[in-house]
């Protein structure tokens, strides 16, 4: 059986520009009822129907898990992306009907932690908005360190400071402020867990320093928000369904497979959950792996691909789909 997430019919109840790059979207249930309860760190997949095109992108829920009258997400405009964020910013209006998935949490708090140490970079702040709301309500011990480019782009920094005071520290790139990572990692009480959400470089940096300073891997949690990147178009043969498909520049391989009427299971659409893992039957070309699921060995083998984020360049690719 498939383990994909169930879906929810929602209405866009509000669209709020937050700053030059980020806009917040509020969703309410179309039937007027309460949305499902969720846990801090969960995301939903938002289905964007843009004429003939369907894009399905994951966004972290940032609203308080204690309030299920609405869900909110924040979308950063990515002018070089595949157009999902531009669609959200440019076309989605209050009153629109949309379909989102049930919440799925792949970035869960470890509730055994004596303290939660959170590191956010840029739009990676969104899951921490929900997690801090959840922890604050339970009297949980947390500390949030948030790195932003400029004060003007410090999304929700003011709200977080107002809500949690000195438990939140902001670092501005344009003022040459940096998260004092080694000092933080060296001065935590036993039983502290580390959470990182931000650009890949920040995650790699924090994981490497934590490992070097003796943090057990089980206490380090991170979420990559690797949206699929656009790329050179390519053709793929789906052996089981007997179809040949074309993956357009702005389309992910998974979306192209779905557009052909084949529905692989998925949860994250961001290269981390493993659900859409697909066997390669044959290939003549180069894989452009962008996932965090397959091992380096798998990547080198040419036998597997994660179609949600990875692409291909070459003469032919035949997949077991």
């Amino acid at each position: 059986m498939s383990t994909g997430a169930s879906k929810l019919d929602v209405v866009v109840s509000n669209v709020v520009p937050v700053n030059e790059l980020v806009t917040r979207f509020h969703f309410r249930r179309a039937d007027g009822g309460l949305l499902p309860t969720f846990s801090g760190g969960a995301h939903v997949i938002v289905e964007m129907r843009d004429g003939e095109r369907a894009r399905l992108n994951p966004y972290s829920l940032m609203s308080s898990p204690l309030d299920t009258s609405e869900y909110t997400i924040s979308v950063r405009r990515d002018d070089l992306g595949r157009g999902g964020s531009l669609f959200m910013h440019g076309k989605v209006r209050p009153g629109d009907r949309m379909v989102i998935s049930y919440p799925v949490n792949l970035f869960s708090l470890d509730l055994r932690a004596k303290k939660h140490l959170m590191l956010a970079g840029g739009i990676g702040i969104t899951p921490f908005l929900a997690q801090t709301a959840q922890l604050a309500a339970e009297g949980g011990n947390f500390e949030l360190h948030y790195s932003v480019r400029t004060a003007a782009l410090a999304t929700y920094a003011g709200d977080l400071r107002a809500r949690f005071g000195r438990r939140v520290s902001i670092y501005h790139d344009d003022r040459d402020e940096r998260i004092p990572l080694d000092r933080l990692l060296s001065s935590q009480p036993l039983g502290t867990h580390l959470y990182i959400c931000g650009p890949a470089g920040m995650i790699d940096w924090a994981r490497a320093r934590a490992a070097a300073l003796g943090w057990p891997a089980e206490t380090v949690h991170y979420e990559h928000f690797a949206a699929p990147q656009p790329g050179v178009p390519f053709d793929v043969t789906l052996a089981l369904s007997g179809r040949t498909i074309h993956v357009a520049e702005q389309q992910s391989l998974l979306e192209a497979i779905e557009a052909a009427g084949v529905d692989p299971p998925y949860l994250c659409r961001g290269g981390v959950c493993g659900q859409c893992e697909t066997n390669v039957i044959s290939s003549d070309g180069v894989f452009l792996h962008n996932d965090h699921w397959l091992s380096d060995e798998d990547h080198a083998s040419g036998k597997k691909i994660m179609p949600c984020v990875s692409r291909f360049a070459g003469k032919s690719l035949v997949l077991e789909r």
């Binding site: 383990t3 994909g4 997430a5 169930s6 499902p36 969720f38 049930y102 949860l267």
Partner: peptide, 12 residues
Amino acid sequence: KFLTNVQQGKPA
């Protein structure tokens, strides 16, 4: 592998 992927709203 199956159980860790059981999702809300979809019991097994």
